[in-house]
């Protein structure tokens, strides 16, 4: 167990180092930040001074080592655009995205798993057929279309829910939460539905096919031959086996959602990290981009490790004796 973990950690470190190198290279090759930052018609001396303050005049290797050192200390540089530390910029945006992603994931799991089971057990039922065709729409419709449609119906026509922003927030010091106010919760509904729709479809289809697989296995036939109640066989014996790949996919999807909630955040003007990232691309705000790359890499490595550890808890075959 400890050996597996240490090997995993080592691999994670290597991945992070590679990601850091790529982030560093970005600084060098995505345009000259100095040209973008100085005012028009600046003198060469002014440019050089700025270059020196940004530390861009030193040798490459030294710059990389310094970069790694800064990253390790949590110093991700200063945003070219906002002239603020990137770390605090990310932290201020993180709660918005995380809250959105958590709600979307819970929604996807809570609806996707039961629907998937239903579709596997009763493929002929009306609800199963409806789900099957609806999810086809869900998986093929682009997120921005779903988002805009929802805004059109619930915000513009019915005026039930807000169309943009996070509503009233409660500041917990390090975390600005929308969970604690009515308007915050109301604002969460539409974007999280938009974000959850694709995951929901994916999870539902995965559960369905896994469940069909498991139901044809010998141990489920053996359970029937022992006359165990259907609800017990489906709900406990079969579902547990069917949910194993769902853990992996959900883990990866959470990573995906956090990193790439961009479209949804843009449509709903959600002040999350995706919006920060799109704005940074346009500028180009390289420190933010690099920090974002690092953050996403770290997120995926972390989630993969959590999934691995979770697996050893779920699947006794992976636990070493």
């Amino acid at each position: 167990m400890i050996r597996i973990l240490s090997v995993r950690l080592l691999q994670a470190l290597l991945v992070m180092l590679a990601v850091t190198a790529i982030a560093f290279i970005m600084f060098r090759f995505v345009g000259d930040p100095v040209a973008a930052m100085v005012r028009e018609g600046a003198t060469q001396a002014e440019k050089d001074a700025l270059r020196a303050t940004l530390g861009l005049d030193k040798p490459l290797v030294l710059q990389f080592i310094e970069f790694v050192g800064r990253v390790l200390r949590g110093d991700l540089g200063t945003s070219f655009r906002y002239q603020q530390p990137v770390a605090s910029l990310l932290m201020s945006r993180l709660p918005a995205t995380l809250e959105l992603v958590i709600i979307a994931t819970v929604m996807a799991l809570a609806i996707g798993i039961p629907l998937g089971v239903l579709c596997a057990l009763k493929p002929q039922a009306v609800l199963s057929r409806l789900t099957q065709s609806m999810t086809l729409v869900g998986i093929s419709m682009p997120t921005f279309v779903t988002g805009l449609l929802l805004i059109l119906i619930f915000a513009v026509n019915l005026r039930w829910l807000p169309s943009s922003g996070r509503g009233d927030l409660v500041d917990l010091g390090f975390w600005q939460s929308g969970f604690l106010t009515a308007s915050g919760l109301k604002s969460l509904i539409l974007p999280s539905i938009t974000l959850a729709l694709f995951q929901l479809t994916l999870i539902m289809r995965l559960v369905r096919s896994e469940m069909i697989d498991v139901l044809s296995s010998d141990y489920i036939r053996f359970a029937f031959a022992r006359g165990l109640p259907r609800s017990y066989i489906y709900g406990r014996l079969a579902l547990r086996n069917a949910l194993m790949p769902v853990v992996t996919v959900t883990g990866l999807q959470i990573g995906q959602l956090i990193a790439f909630a961009i479209v949804t955040e843009t449509v709903f003007q959600w002040p999350g990290m995706g919006l920060l990232f799109t704005n940074a691309v346009g500028y180009p705000d390289v420190p933010v981009l690099a920090a974002y790359l690092l953050f996403v890499g770290f997120l995926f490595v972390l989630i993969n490790m959590i999934v691995d550890v979770l697996y050893t808890f779920i699947d006794p075959r992976l636990r070493t004796k």
């Binding site: 489920i220 036939r221 053996f222 029937f224 022992r226 014996l237 086996n241 779920i314 006794p316 075959r317």
Partner: peptide, 20 residues
């Protein structure tokens, strides 16, 4: 089934649920 008829299957590697 189970109470009145017991069953033994062919492959013991697959007839027991690996997670229980």
């Amino acid at each position: 089934p189970g109470r009145d008829v017991g069953a033994i299957f062919q492959d013991p590697m697959t007839s027991l649920n690996p997670l229980f």
